[in-house]
Design a protein around this nucleic acid. Sequence first.
DNA 1: GACCTGCTGCGGGCTG
Length: 727
Amino acid sequence: MSSAFDKLARPVQKWIRQQGWRELRDIQARSIRTICETDADLIVAASTAGGKTEAAFLPLISQVFDDPFDGTGFDLLYIGPLKALITDQAIRLASICPEAELPVVPWHGDVSQSIKTRALKSPKGILLITPESLEALFIRRGLEISRLFGATRAVVIDELHTVLDSERGVQLRSLLTRLELTIKRPIRRIGLSATLGDMDLAKAYLRPDAANAVQLIEADGGEAELRLQLRGYVSGDEGENSPSATDAIAAHLFKHLRGSDNLVFAGARQRVEIYADRLRELCEREHLPQEFYPHHASLSREHRDFVEHRLKDAAKPTTAVCTSTLELGIDIGDVTCVAQIGAPFSVAALRQRLGRSGRREGQPAVLRQYAVETQLTPESSFVDRLRLGLIRSIAMIDLLLEGWCEPARPQALHLSTLVHQILSVIAQRGGASASVVYSILCREGPFRKVTTEVFADVLRSIGHTETGLIEQSGSGLLLLGPAGEKLVEHYSFYAVFQTPEEFRLVAEGKDLGTLPIDNVLAPGMLLIFSGRRWVVQEIHDREKVIMVKPAKAGVPPVFGGDPGDIHDKVIDRMFAVLEGGTQPAYMDAASLKMLAEARAHYDQLGFRATNIQALGEGTSIIATRVGTVKTSTLALALRSEGFSVERHDGFLLVEVGHETPNLQTVLADIRSGEPVDLFLEAGNLMSEKFHKYLSAKILHLDAVSSKLAPEILPQLANAIMRKGPAN
DNA sequence: GACCTGCTGCGGGCTG
């Protein structure tokens, strides 16, 4: 401890003693040495509550005390993805920093104007801010950036893994580049992250021009014992005396989770509502106190705070039935068990979720996986017969145990976010030439895959008279057009991600939460929401408010959403499970029976020998054996030839009409590299916030860079046909 | 066949 401890400033050493720490953690000692002895960028990777914040800030604060930079502005910058995280971290950091010397300034939408005004007047200390609020500073105070950040010696990016290659992550990288260009020197970058599947990608994300120089400080495993069970349930066979799969799972959860703190990940908000309702009913029926509560993003802040506080409160046993809201960030303490209902969408998310349990010394991590499959009938589809949900659960658990998780996809163009950043740079500088904007965003910044040709196309698209976001002055300077001014002026501009339109749900004057507008509702209709039952009284379309009052029955609303991308490696493992013979020890009798059925049907359908199976009149199944991106690409290619195609994990169900050509011939054409128009039947491509300002041609490029893989079509067709049909 | 995240400046009315 001594060598690292000795490097810290006196007030920081004093704080450590006050905490009663007997020693620094390994990652903290290593991080202190790296920060004090080098100028390197670094990533500190450890689980939640692993002491990452202190690992970064103890040495950084010491440096500010002992050797402050010249210039004006905040000494340190912290960027966090959640308001709650910023509030928490500000409290932790304020206890380290003697207030008069180093102010700690939280800055997000809920922070009062007076704190912001004071900080703007005299910027110093540690600024903790969201990407959106930083964006707002660039747009509203573009000329003051040097004054605000001239003295900044490091930027700490919290939860780095949550922003890798997302729209928000690209925005953040763009802002960091623009910050360095404005103050004309690099700022040390420190990423705090959960353990990732591919640390090299994270390094390249943090500092694209010098990824190899980024130092990695990773907590050594020392992982808790893992207890694992996968239980199988069959739905659709409920007779008079047998409960539905939902009731059976709810009963099992009730029996095993009651009395402790747990997280139940139900996969979708609608399922969260269903299970929370059943579990509440079970408590009432047994005259037991309520301890099961729903938690998802459409519920009111007040309700979510209540559930989070109960989870932290050791005296009250609490199980949250939740979506990924409780997967990230905020510290809710250790939970006894993590349950997952239905197959997850990524191994990375499963790992993150599991990390919520087994954190206390000597306590095992517990994962209860529930697989729900349909009762088979003679009419059952091949998807049900192959039990794809169960198979995916097994594949993902296997990969989790092997320590694998999905890497980011760094090749996306992110053209919606590029539109946003073009407007932001023009607003910051009050106008800029096209070549300067290109240089900032695409040469120095994160849009490196955007060529000058594509960039020019994007400019033409948003400068088009109908769009009118930008215009060009006589001297060639790009300026905001009237529509651009209006867009950038409104506060809704700062976020780069899309948010759907919603109704507010109000009961007796109190907000329950929000509902997507595509729910068709009328007075008298019954609802399950926030774990309770309601009847709709009034709907105010203009104000987007729905008034409800308590009721005895209800149905859960529809929340919608986009299906996720399943990685190639997961699909590959699913086929290995179907073709293998292992019977994992963590599976119960019911799920093992389903696995045996799935394997028998797989053999019976003949997929060991061939990838294409005719399934009666006019229908074929293709085993693509690859993930969502590649499988979707083939689906679009076949649709453009007139087939109707349904996508599943690693399979396509193809309907061959009388008008359509022969499937074999079409696949052979694809194999030989014949061009196909993927976008003939692709539907709506405007999935991101600023897509609506882009031409069809640019939207196609964007889709190809992120959601499709046309270059692999010949190879994929070849792999499929190599194990062609028996004939 | 899914989930999550964020938001400024100004004016009006009130209190001390």
